[in-house]
Design a protein around this nucleic acid. Structure first.
Length: 288
DNA sequence: CGATTAACCTGGAAGC
DNA sequence: TGCTTCCAGGTTAATC
């Protein structure tokens, strides 16, 4: 579920509980998620302060006072929920909207900032998510972040940089945009939406996207991501902000999940095809 | 080297 | 109702 907008919504929800707070308790209920949890995971977190919680593509990164960073990825079904810690709550305060299946609460943190305690639960049924610890220094070259493309909402993502990244590639533009090395943070939904807005066929080979179309695509990528963040992300099945609130951008999808419905631009039925094993939704008439 | 596919894992929806 | 099959927001190791 989580592409860049959803991860950004999660970051904004976790930041008040995590930034400036210390891990007072770390509980793991299994040794691994997608990968084994790092060695001495609890020891390296407990008592450590979080200086900042940031996002890089679909990754969440908590920079710690210890000189390490906690890297978190939500995979497909990862979800963080923030609630007040047991013990500090008053009766009726312990409200956790839609907690999901507790069988999949794999990691829990208790964060303490002065006298305020927050409980953070990580729930992930499919366990495609992971957590890792790396030195903050040189993090951009760590195994998870090395080779990652520019942040689409940042200054390094320009019409020229996108055009250059696409120029050497013969893969379909759909596949190229899913490659995190081209631009960070896009997933299946927002690639479909951005290509529709730019009226580019998902089948077109990346190097055949003209400079003018690259510039338009650059604009539609930023536009669709910014609008999605503004709407609180997209909730298809199980995405929710860390306070349990759903997103609303799914109501504004123009093509994603709308096979056979009329194209909002020309009225022709929306098509679906499978590219690199994933569904692509598009308008065969508008997108060339 | 770049591109495509299979696999990781579970749950929900659709089909029979 | 119950069983089977298909599909899902992501990444990556293996194969072409």
């Amino acid at each position: 579920m989580p592409e860049l907008p959803e991860v950004e919504i999660v970051r904004r929800g976790l930041a008040p509980a995590m930034e400036g707070a210390v891990f007072s308790s770390v509980e793991t209920r299994r040794p691994d998620l997608r990968f084994p949890l790092p060695q001495k995971f609890r020891d390296r977190l407990q008592g450590t302060r979080v200086d900042a919680l940031r996002r890089r593509g679909k990754y969440l990164i908590a920079d710690l006072g210890s000189g390490e960073s906690l890297i978190m990825h939500l995979g497909m079904t990862g979800r963080f929920t923030v609630s007040k810690a047991a013990g500090t709550v008053r009766p009726g305060d312990f409200y956790r909207a839609d907690p999901g299946d507790p069988a999949h609460d794999h990691v829990s943190f208790v964060m303490r900032k002065r006298r305020l305690e927050s409980r953070i639960d990580y729930n992930d049924p499919r366990r495609f998510g992971f957590m890792d610890l790396e030195r903050t220094n040189g993090l951009d070259n760590s195994r998870h972040l090395a080779g990652m493309g520019p942040e689409p909402l940042g200054p390094d993502f320009t019409p020229q940089s996108l055009n250059a990244a696409l120029s050497g590639r013969s893969a379909p533009i759909k596949a190229a945009l899913l490659d995190q090395a081209v631009v960070a943070g896009l997933g299946n939904i927002y690639v479909c939406e951005a290509l529709f807005r730019a009226k580019i066929s998902p089948r077109r080979q990346a190097y055949n996207v003209s400079a003018a179309k690259s510039a338009l695509l650059h604009e539609t990528i930023r536009e669709v991501l910014a609008e999605a963040i503004e709407a609180g992300g997209s909730t298809l099945r199980d995405f929710a902000a860390s306070d349990g609130a759903p997103g609303f951008f799914q109501d504004r999808f123009q093509v994603y999940g709308r096979e056979k419905e009329p194209c909002p631009s020309c009225g022709a039925p929306i098509g679906r095809l499978v590219q690199s094993g994933r569904s692509t939704f598009y308008c065969g008439k508008c997108q060339r």
